[in-house]
């Protein structure tokens, strides 16, 4: 128990806790849109394409997060454009952008003279080195997204659910879709810090799938996903500390474990009910 309290004396751990909580809240909002619209694969494409931006930024001596953001936003807009036009097979286009981004990232990192120490932290996350500026940025983005969802809930959800009817109702469907594509890209890039490129997508999907065991209303999925995201990722953070394992992987593992346990409880309950009746 004293161990548990004593780790809070470390500033890096307090920062990591805050980052886990804030990232979970952000991922709950954005991830609910992703899961509802069934664009998980698109988001995977955006995530991996951003690695190209990271590599390029390394090579040019710029801030890698800036590079990732530019690549992610461009990829997101590109994919949304392709899906609107519907002329190219969307899934193939995503796969191309996905691997092209990774390839460019690897090439640029290889060309960059000297050792690139941060590379692993982008792939696997580095929540234990999150600074105060990054936390402030996360908080700002969370508040902004919460306000945006509260104000534009109707057009946002309706244009995701039935774009054609929404168009008939005069909702600027294309505008909302492109705007959300940009928000998804930025949210992913900002979350890469926590769990890394390889694992970030699960932060945007596992808590949602867990929440959807309890409710299937868009507005209620968000707070529940935030709750399950926070419990899972904070548990993962502690597990990482006590068992001395990588934090990103530990968080995702516990999020999945949490989902499986709750799913199991639901399954047993429904079996028992069937037996009684």
């Amino acid at each position: 128990m004293t161990d548990l309290i004593s780790i809070f004396e470390y500033q890096f751990f307090r920062h990591a806790m805050a980052a886990a909580v804030l990232t979970s809240i952000l991922a709950a909002m954005i991830g609910t849109y992703i899961v509802s619209r069934k664009i998980v694969f698109i988001s995977g494409g955006i995530t991996h394409a951003s690695f190209g931006g990271i590599g390029m930024a390394f090579y040019m001596g710029l801030n890698p997060f800036f590079g990732a953001a530019v690549f992610a936003v461009l990829t997101a807009l590109g994919i949304e454009w392709i899906s609107f036009k519907g002329k190219v097979r969307e899934d193939s286009a995503i796969a191309i952008l996905w691997s092209l981004g990774m390839a460019m990232g690897i090439i640029f990192v290889f060309l960059t003279p000297g050792y690139t120490p941060d590379l692993m932290s982008f792939l696997f996350g580095s929540i234990l080195s999150v600074g105060i500026t990054e936390l402030q940025l996360l908080l700002l983005f969370c508040v902004f997204m919460a306000l945006f969802y509260m104000i534009f809930y109707r057009p946002l959800v309706y244009s995701a659910f039935d774009p054609e009817f929404s168009k008939v109702m005069g909702i600027p469907v294309a505008f909302y879709r492109y705007l959300m594509a940009v928000f998804i890209a930025l949210a992913i890039v900002i979350s890469i810090r926590t769990v890394g490129i390889i694992l970030v997508l699960s932060l945007f999907t596992i808590p949602q799938i867990t929440a959807m065991l309890f409710t299937r209303s868009f507005a209620r999925i968000i707070p529940l996903a935030a709750l399950w995201g926070i419990t899972g990722s904070v548990a993962g953070l502690f597990a990482a500390y006590f068992f001395d394992i990588p934090t990103g992987a530990s968080m995702i593992f516990l999020l999945t474990l949490q989902f499986l346990i709750i799913r199991g409880v639901f399954l047993i309950r429904s079996l028992l009910i069937r037996r009684v009746s």
Binding site: R154, Y158, D162, E164, M169, M212, R216, S217, I221
Partner: peptide, 29 residues
């Protein structure tokens, strides 16, 4: 066949989507 029946939206929200919110900064019914 054009409708995604797994989308998390309830009956009330569905019916509400047939109404236009009054003009303004806060597009709620």
């Amino acid at each position: 066949s054009q409708i995604d029946r797994t989308f998390p939206i309830n009956v009330k929200e569905l019916v509400s989507s047939g109404l236009k919110a009054p003009k303004g900064w806060f597009p709620h019914l």
